[in-house]
Design a protein around this nucleic acid. Sequence first.
DNA 1: GATGAATGAGTCTTCATTCAT
DNA 2: TATGAATGAAGACTCATTCAT
Lengths: 228, 228, 228, 228
Amino acid sequence: MTPPDPTPAGTAHVPRWERRKESRPAELLAAALELFVERGYAATRLDEVAARAGVSKGTLYLYFESKEELFKAVVRETIVPLIDAYRRDVEGSGEPSAVLLERFFREWWERFGATRLAGLAKLIIAEAGNFPEVARFFHDEVIEPNGAVLAAIIERGVARGEFVPVDVRTSVHLWMAPLVLKAIWAHSLDALCPAASRVEPEEFLVAHARLVLASLRHGGEAQPRPGC
Amino acid sequence: MTPPDPTPAGTAHVPRWERRKESRPAELLAAALELFVERGYAATRLDEVAARAGVSKGTLYLYFESKEELFKAVVRETIVPLIDAYRRDVEGSGEPSAVLLERFFREWWERFGATRLAGLAKLIIAEAGNFPEVARFFHDEVIEPNGAVLAAIIERGVARGEFVPVDVRTSVHLWMAPLVLKAIWAHSLDALCPAASRVEPEEFLVAHARLVLASLRHGGEAQPRPGC
Amino acid sequence: MTPPDPTPAGTAHVPRWERRKESRPAELLAAALELFVERGYAATRLDEVAARAGVSKGTLYLYFESKEELFKAVVRETIVPLIDAYRRDVEGSGEPSAVLLERFFREWWERFGATRLAGLAKLIIAEAGNFPEVARFFHDEVIEPNGAVLAAIIERGVARGEFVPVDVRTSVHLWMAPLVLKAIWAHSLDALCPAASRVEPEEFLVAHARLVLASLRHGGEAQPRPGC
Amino acid sequence: MTPPDPTPAGTAHVPRWERRKESRPAELLAAALELFVERGYAATRLDEVAARAGVSKGTLYLYFESKEELFKAVVRETIVPLIDAYRRDVEGSGEPSAVLLERFFREWWERFGATRLAGLAKLIIAEAGNFPEVARFFHDEVIEPNGAVLAAIIERGVARGEFVPVDVRTSVHLWMAPLVLKAIWAHSLDALCPAASRVEPEEFLVAHARLVLASLRHGGEAQPRPGC
DNA sequence: GATGAATGAGTCTTCATTCAT
DNA sequence: TATGAATGAAGACTCATTCAT
């Protein structure tokens, strides 16, 4: 009837906790990212972050000076590796620009849209008013560089006569938007709605590429409208 | 044929979300909307809402039972009039579907994208995890009906042979995304960044319409790719 | 067997709390002074301050921004009225300087030594390292002005030939010290020790005056030492 | 009838406060003394004590059971050697009592007033409310014995007709006070104020001795006041 | 022994909510 | 009805103490 002795004679000693200086920060950041994305900055309790990372509240403060610092670290540490890898991998080639473009979108989706960055983007958009420096960091380190890559592809395509001329800056915004919103959506309303009404990412990606390429082959303005 | 006055004696109108008496300070809702959008739900203090509305904190509780109820009322009261007006106004006509479509986007922007609904959308996306009912309300009352209108236009265009056949559900998402994201952005990063890097809404709208119409005239798949 | 209903029918309503905006700050300051003097700054819990003042913890923050501000307010509000009254009252007269001097010491004791200022002095001495601005305020507003009054009396006595010449600055320190230490002591060790070993203030004051006046009549240096 | 010797094997010395093994880092006590004096008990963090002593926080606990024990050890270990040496050195002689008295004050200053005991005194006065046993220890081991030595000198002087009769207990307090306060002050306000307004210890000591001796030669009461 | 990572009780502080006025 | 003083539960953060290494 008595509960078994938790540390009976002859049983291997089960330490109450372990020292894991190396792995703690990453675990804490992961837990914090999840919760920040789920609930937003203010509604996230550090207790829960700690609990989700399997440590006590105090341990958090061994690694991060404050909630705000934790937040900034989450942003930084999530973004930087993604961006660094991205920068290394996006490179020129001799292929047709349309192929480059399609690959760009697909890669973006795989590297960003389908990763934790998507949740982070939602978070940063939501907290831009409260954390302008963070928003600016995100803008400068993620949005701008990514836009520059896309712009380069467009310009190449135009220069080589593969694409009709377009306004590059506008196009970047216009073409990224569906992917970005889709990615954000996945961490928001999609989590609540019956899968039925959702469009599958693959399907969405294909349609998106088709839309963009259609406009690049024919433009949208010069052509006579059907029936006119 | 006009809808009955919403709150006279002997009212028949029973809205999904209860309406409260007309005398309630709309200033409170306006102040709350602003602050919720600026800072998010949790970071908004009722003190400030009251102050911005020019009343005392206690007065807030004469009109709203709690912070959560205030939030829901903000969502409800911001959305419902917009949607109600929208429903009355979007009607069929004999014009070409391309014209309808262009008008639809422009009207959407003017009625929603450039209004407080945009901030609300950002807010709801951010708080979807904390307020699933609100998110669902938004989905059911705003996103779905709006999508249905757009879908109807597409279907009409296809039926009349004005548009190439497309997958309607995907297209709705794909085409709304740039407008939606642009609207959200205005309440987030755009508020921080130098105007220089921004694309003007008018320019954006035009480019967007061009993009969409291009794809509807030619589709994106049948054409041989350049270089093939 | 049931406890009597705390608010039975027919009983006057006993409010859970009262609004006492005017008197709260003074009550809080009094409670805080007591506890700060008893335990020091760091060891004083705001809960206890609030409890001693008969309010809840949150109420404290309606009147003082933080523990530190409360501390500074305690110092300021305890000192300023005492000093202000003191300044009004200490005035010249035609009496012999010895009489002035005796009265000065006695008044000092009654106005400061035997009041809450004594505890405050102990506190400030103890916290000088942690709150240098407070220490400086005390020095500038209490110690210096008081020393100046005493110095004026001494100088008058010397000028009128009533006192032998002395170094004024040194004398001020030398003569204040017994009174100051006695005052501090009352809030420290004296509270613990059997009354037996203590010297009564009255007796102490008389002895102190005698000591000072003796030195002013004869000085201490010119006289041949006994046995020399 | 004697209690069993707690530290047997030929030891005779049974101090009131247990001594711990010699190897214990005196650096810890020194660091702790400094910090306790600077900031007070509660505001001193063990981290800092350890850091200042050049060891890790954990090491502290190898030598002291708790912060409170460390505090008590600091008091004990600072006081006991000083007092022990003092007791050995203060001895009778055939010199005039005035010389004894002057020497007593000067020695007190050099042995106590100008040493770390001064800071400790400030600390104990401040913490008397929180650590009554410590305060009592200080009273019994430092204040009382020191007062007894001074009392003995006074009594000797009176007995030999060198001094006018005085109330011994009162005089002890009265005469120690300037030295004690001066010593405390050096660890408090003096650390903040421009040296200009301070009186040099040497000057102060001389003036103090003069004051005391003047009163002992003539008393303060029998003489006609000037002008009477 | 020595270290310092981990713990968690305890504090300050905030703010949604209540209620005397 | 309107106010804002008062409340108290909750959350960020600290730090004495423990214990795996």
